[in-house]
Nucleic acid binder design. Structure first.
Lengths: 239, 239
DNA sequence: CTATTCCAAATGATATACGATCTGACGGCG
DNA sequence: CGCCGTCAGATCGTATATCATTTGGAATAG
């Protein structure tokens, strides 16, 4: 009787698209963990649709690498192997670096200020031991820098990479103790380069290294603590 | 009665996958030109399947950016705008550059020799005015360099970029007179860098520049000849 | 007790049928 | 003459039904 439900889905959205968002949301927020079986009929019932649109949604998620789907076997949230994960990270470092460099000439003082404010809040999270907010803010920080990216195509690759990384955020090898503090410092360094209108290549390599160092730290951490229970301190977040 | 048909599709392939390949093949070889309407029922009849798998195939092609699909309107081969095309090229230059640099440490003398042989044949094509073979060999050349790429994820991005480029190979702004000869010279230069075990960054930037120069040449050509009928000489091929 | 075979339930894959929406043409009205 | 409403055809979107495959366990033989 009253207004529409708070989270009422856009009625102009097709059922296939609704299914897509439904599943994707659950993968992103961790309700569907890697290995979780996505049964067509079951999800269809949950959404009160038939299996056809659900199937379409799952196929698209498969194309993004978030889901694996085998003929006559079924679909499950991707259980990304460590090497695959590292490959994704490596690719992401390259793509993000380039996207940052492309965006650099279009970044205003306002963008810098907003990004810096976010980075300050990340420092707060460090003190409060709040890895969840830290990770969210980290994405926000980079999103601000990408707002004016002139090349939507490369931004799309960035987002795909983020999604793929996100599938595994609970997995042991996506955490790197001791990186969070270094991360915020690198953010500040990056902002200084942007403010100083540094050469594009310099910015690109700095942004790339920002993620590469996380990757390296992960590898080193893996080598030392083979399957040791992670963490205790914050820092339990990729950056 | 005799052996299986020459191009008999793998019977273990699902009908959805068959449809996917069917359509994609036609987009890639130009039988379906940009703007060509893909009517579900029609393609379903051609393949003797129902519309459901065809629909699935088209959705996947849409996700790859090869097809556009509008609700209740239909699908058509993507008519990629010039700016989109340039964005794809720009992204591709970055991704290819990185993939080349990653592959460099794993490239053997044999790979170099094979790549060089292909490049020689490209020179022949230059003399024979054979743009079609030239383009095909160009892909082969780079494929050889990517054979040992340790990161399949970034290779996937390369292939997606190539496919997207390929959709438009007949479109006026994908041709750049005067580039073919420079292209084979840059190939040779790249091979020399690889033979000399040049630093990764140097190789990356050289490979990136190889495509970027084509991009720049395209832009310059566009600026001069606004919509003039292209070509006459070979060179009518991206490199 | 173990290995093997076979069957039934679960699940995916696809065909068919129906409903919804868009497009373009036709004809009346201003 | 041009604008607008209506209608028919085309096409997509989805539900339902049916077929095919897999899987796990029960029954049976060794």
């Amino acid at each position: 009787m009253a207004g529409p439900a708070v989270n009422a889905p856009d009625p102009t959205l097709s059922k296939a698209q609704r299914s897509y968002r439904y599943i994707r949301e659950r993968i992103n927020d961790g309700r569907y963990v890697p290995g979780f079986r996505l049964v067509l009929g079951q999800i269809a019932k949950e959404l009160d649709v038939s299996v056809v649109p659900v199937r379409e949604a799952i196929r698209l998620l498969e194309a993004e690498g978030l889901v694996t789907f085998e003929r006559n076997i079924g679909a499950q949230v991707a259980m990304i192997k460590e090497t695959e994960y590292l490959h994704t990270m490596q690719t992401l470092s390259i793509v993000e670096g380039a996207a940052t460099a492309m965006s650099a000439p279009h970044i205003s003082a306002d963008h810098i200020a907003r990004a810096r404010a976010i980075n300050e809040r990340m420092i707060d999270c460090l003190g409060d031991f709040d890895p969840h907010s830290f990770t969210a803010l980290n994405l926000e920080f980079h999103s601000v820098l990408f707002e004016e990216c002139p090349n939507p195509h490369i931004l799309d690759l960035v987002h795909r990479g983020w999604n793929r990384m996100n599938v595994l955020r609970d997995s042991s090898f996506s955490f790197v103790p001791g990186r969070a503090r270094a991360s915020v410092e690198e953010h500040e360094e990056l902002l200084r380069l942007l403010e100083a209108d540094a050469p594009a290549l310099e910015i690109e390599l700095a942004a790339r290294a920002h993620r590469t160092r996380t990757l390296d730290a992960m590898l080193a951490y893996q080598a030392e603590h083979k399957r040791a229970a992670p963490v205790g301190e914050l820092d339990a977040t990729s950056a």
